[in-house]
């Protein structure tokens, strides 16, 4: 059933986001061609710049669209009239959350890949690629020196953090929308207030945890190795806990406190 939900969610989101990805790729190609023509003189010299600006705007539009559609789909599909359909499908309500979350993650990753590919289409040359990989190699070598044997650990921890952090941002929005619908009226305003409150509360909690952890572990000397040994693992654990709480709160509200108009 999760697969079917994901399939339908992809169908619903593709109609907005796929065209935007395609526009981005086309604009990056246009940018490359216009910039490489080198025929624009005088005031016409503005044309390549305009192409670049349009291209950059299309990146911003795609990023904003992915975020807005993620919010819109969760709210509209689950908590407006469409919720009557979705919550009476023969599926568990956690599957509904999972399908939305997975598709939101898929689009976030697809957006990142689309931007990288489009950057390469627009600007990459054999020389610049070579330069990039040289820079990358020396960056990695430097990391190896700074963190001695812990470079791989550091990189893995970093990516786990980014991944969990993305999920955290999405779940924070989901739980805020779910809390907002507990209000009989002004559900959207309720969601916004819930978002602000939960956000501030969780940041305060994180600061508190860091202060306590620093005191307990007595980190008087900050070394580079505290990053892979303590900071990143601690961050992973904290984010995991927050993700669990946000997810479970959303699930609980859907199961016990659903309040469709």
């Amino acid at each position: 059933m999760l697969g079917k939900l994901i399939k339908h969610e992809l169908k619903a989101t593709c109609r907005y986001l796929l065209p935007l990805c395609l526009i981005l790729l086309v604009l990056s190609l246009v940018t490359r061609i216009v910039v490489s023509l080198e025929v624009f003189e005088g005031t016409l010299g503005i044309i390549p710049n305009m192409a670049k600006v349009t291209y950059i705007i299309s990146i911003v539009v795609l990023a904003v669209a992915i975020l807005l559609i993620m919010i819109f789909r969760f709210y509209k599909n689950l908590l407006t009239e469409e919720g009557y359909l979705m919550f009476t499908l023969p599926v568990r309500s956690d599957r509904l959350i999972n399908s939305k979350l997975i598709v939101a993650m898929m689009w976030t990753l697809a957006g990142i890949i689309a931007v990288i590919v489009s950057l390469m289409i627009a600007f990459a040359t054999p020389e610049s690629m070579k330069e990039f990989f040289n820079d990358f190699d020396s960056f990695m070598a430097e990391l190896g020196i700074i963190f001695s044997g812990k470079r791989t650990l550091l990189i893995i921890e970093f990516f786990i953090n980014v991944f969990l952090g993305l999920i955290n941002n999405i779940l924070l929005i989901y739980v805020s929308i779910a809390v907002g619908q507990l209000f009989t009226r002004h559900k959207i305003a309720g969601s916004l207030i819930a978002y602000l409150c939960i956000n501030v509360a969780s940041e305060l909690l994180i600061i508190l945890i860091i202060v306590i952890a620093a005191n307990i572990m007595d980190v008087s000397i900050i070394e580079v190795n505290t990053i892979p040994d303590m900071l990143l693992p601690l961050s992973i654990v904290i984010t995991l806990i927050f993700n669990y709480v946000f997810y479970y709160a959303t699930y609980y509200i859907f199961r016990k406190k659903l309040n469709l108009d």
Partner: peptide
């Protein structure tokens, strides 16, 4: 259970 809600609940698009 087959349910007809009082609201129109099908996605408009």
């Amino acid at each position: 259970v087959s349910y007809l809600p009082e609201k129109m609940c099908l996605p408009e698009w």
